[in-house]
Design a protein around this nucleic acid. Structure first.
Length: 314
DNA sequence: TAGATACCTTATAG
DNA sequence: ACTATAAGGTATC
């Protein structure tokens, strides 16, 4: 196993638990098994694991020289991010966790509204993630009308059932399924995993990618609103899910997914931004929150409201 | 083209 | 215990 460390001196403030347990990514698991278990506790120094595929690596990433699924584990001890992996994972971690983002500059470019500043203060160091496009597409197709903890369970079930396995240190992990694997699944098999009406959406969208009809990564080079429109070609993907893929995978930091939480926030704090339809409301709240970094603002507000809004965690 | 409705499943509130 | 409601919406009519 390779290993290494990254400190805040190198990458600025970061908060691993908030980054990985804020409903942005469903590709990591906690070694203690309590991912998204509220109630049980603080995972400040928990160890997180994910399985990555060499074919998802950008040019120059040491990951790209490997064959078959690879494993990365990370934990945060105070100001230090410690990792161990079956390859030299620093490049991958910097990219996937957006460790090169200048958080202070991003915050400075967003609005000074109290709700947003409270979220920044509370979870300072949280990063927007940059997950692989296909994985993100499927995860957020599954997210429709679903709680975060259940979305996570569903992705875990998909991986266990259809993903390639890899064993490290006597522990077996499963990679996220390939487009081929999910395209070959039947609706009935997917319903058995509890996907409900999302089952045919997942199968058909996977089939589109597997057959070459389209790929979510193709939207990366487009102008933001064209990218969002393009992503809705996939079955089960409307404007909201398209924004999630744009933000959490394709690097469109201006994307603000209009979910139930942000809609509540708009009604309460920014009623003038409600323009009656998705596209116009999206533009208004994007300009209001932070323009090119509005998606970062949304991610902080979402996590803050979901974590501290209605429930008492203490 | 805008608006209403059905849709799987499960955790939680009442 | 039992029912109603809502959960990071979308497709269809």
């Amino acid at each position: 196993m390779d290993s290494g460390t990254l400190s805040t001196d190198e990458v600025g403030a970061f908060d691993l638990q908030s980054t990985l347990e804020s409903g942005q990514t469903y590709l990591w698991g906690r070694e203690d098994g309590s991912m998204y278990d509220r109630g049980d506790a603080y995972g400040g120094d928990a160890k997180y694991t994910t399985v990555v595929r060499p074919e998802n690596a950008p040019p120059g990433d040491p990951l790209g020289t490997k064959v078959g699924p690879q494993v990365v584990r990370v934990r945060q001890i105070d100001d230090c991010l410690e990792w161990e992996a079956t390859f030299d994972a620093e490049t991958t971690l910097r990219r996937r966790l957006r460790l090169d983002d200048d958080l202070a500059a991003i915050r400075a470019a967003t609005s000074d509204d109290s709700i947003l500043q409270a979220a920044f203060d509370r979870y300072w160091g949280m990063r927007v993630v940059r997950d692989p496009p296909f994985e993100t597409l499927i995860s957020f197709i599954c997210s429709a009308q679903m709680r975060v903890s259940r979305i996570y369970d569903m992705q875990r079930s998909l991986a266990d059932e259809f993903g390639e396995s890899v064993t490290v240190d006597d522990h077996t992990y499963h990679a996220f399924p390939t487009p081929d694997a999910l395209a070959s699944a039947t609706e009935s098999q997917l319903r058995d995993l509890g996907l409900g009406y999302r089952a045919p959406y997942v199968q058909r969208s996977a089939e589109m990618v597997a057959s070459g009809e389209g790929h979510p990564a193709e939207a990366a080079g487009m102008a933001y609103e064209d990218a969002r429109e393009s992503l809705t070609q996939f079955v089960g993907v409307g404007e909201k899910v398209a924004d999630c893929v744009a933000l959490f995978s394709l690097g469109f930091l201006q994307a603000v997914p209009l979910d139930t939480w942000i809609r509540t926030t708009i009604a309460e704090y920014f009623p003038e931004c409600d323009r009656g339809n998705y596209a116009e409301t999206s533009r208004a709240i994007r300009e209001r929150l932070g323009g090119e970094y509005a998606g970062y603002a949304q991610t902080y507000v979402f996590h803050h409201l979901r974590n501290d809004g209605t429930e008492r965690s203490d």
